[in-house]
Every structure is written in C-alpha cells, then in structure tokens.
Simulated scan of single mutants.
Amino acid sequence: MLSVKIELLPGGHDAGGKTIATARLGRIKNGPLCAYQVVLEDSVLGEVGGGKVGDYPRFATTIWDLVARAIAVSLTGNEELPPRPNVVSVQRRESDGIPYVRISDIPEPAKTFFTRNIAYSTCPFVSEEPDPMGCAYWWDFDDFLSGRR
C-alpha cells in the first residue's frame, strides 16, 4: 500500500502541518504488469475519487509516474488529466451599500470550503434575499479566493 499525503504547512514550516488530502494506492495484481486500486480522500469533502490503474509496468519509471496516473484515473476514469477548472466566479450583490454574495451561488467545492472558513465570522442579514442569513460579505469571499483568509 502506498499513501500520498498532501499537507498544508503554515509559513512553510513542517511544525504545525495539517494533512488536507490523501491518495491511497493498493497493488491488487502482482507481476511485471501490476494493477493498482486507488482512492482519493479530502479532509473536508471525504472520498472524492477512485479507480484502477491496470497493466502498469513495475520499475519502468519513477513512483511519481504511477502516482500521477493513479490521480488522473481517479479524477477522470482515464490516464489523462481533466481540463483545468475555471476561476470561481460569483455575482457581487449589494444591499444598503454593503457588498455581499449569496452562499448558494458559490459552486462546489468552493462553497464547502468557504462556509467552513467563515463558520465563526459575522455575516450580513439581507432581508430582501430568499434566504436572508445565507449570505456572506463580499470582502470575506474575495479574501478567501485570494488566499488572504
């Protein structure tokens, strides 16, 4: 079994690092052409992908080739990378001069990450919205996307 961990290292230091995602690869067939089962997990979203890399030639290249193919298979079903995602874009709204976003407008997985990020923050109450408490300040969302939050 191989385990690849993605760690967030605050300030670039190992101390205080936090695992935010893992890839687990298990060999399910031995021989010169092996097969591997892979599972991708995210600390917030849970299992986000899985698949099988079959007929993989052992010792023909570095372990990173196997890892890259396993991740690609888990995300696309093929040994190729998916298209690069688009930048998250949400309509900026305003009420009484206060800029805000509707949380329901934020696409996944950004919505899940953002709502966790602002869990203990003050949010606006926008009475004219269908869900008056389902909003966030625009600057919090902008800071989140920019990596300042």
Rank of each mutant, 00 (worst) to 15 (best):
E108L: 11
L33F: 10
V39N: 00
F125C: 15
S89L: 03
V87H: 08
S121I: 08
L66N: 01
R58H: 03
Y56H: 05
P132N: 10
T112D: 14
I106S: 02
D55P: 05
R84N: 10
R84D: 10
T76G: 03
M133L: 15
V101C: 04
V88T: 06
W139T: 11
P109F: 15
V90F: 03
T62G: 08
S43I: 06
F113P: 01
S127I: 15
D105F: 07
G77N: 05
A72D: 07
A72Q: 14
Q91Y: 03
K52M: 10
N86D: 12
P32E: 15
T62Q: 00
M133K: 15
L45N: 12
E128R: 15
P124E: 08
D142S: 14
D131M: 13
E41C: 13
A72S: 14
D55G: 02
V73M: 09
S121N: 12
V38N: 00
N78S: 10
I106N: 02
P99H: 06
E80A: 11
G54R: 10
E80N: 06
P99N: 03
G46R: 13
D96G: 09
P57Q: 00
L40P: 01
P107I: 10
E79N: 08
A35H: 03
P85K: 02
A119H: 07
Y120T: 04
D105E: 07
Y120G: 00
V53Q: 02
M133I: 15
E41R: 14
P83L: 08
P83D: 05
P107Q: 06
L33N: 07
D65G: 07
S95M: 13
Y36D: 00
D96T: 09
F125V: 14
C123N: 01
A60E: 08
L45P: 09
A70D: 04
Q91E: 06
L40F: 09
A68R: 14
F59I: 02
A70S: 13
D55F: 11
D42I: 11
D42F: 11
S121T: 05
R92K: 13
Y137I: 08
P99S: 08
L45W: 12
D140M: 12
L81R: 13
T76Y: 04
K52H: 12
C34S: 11
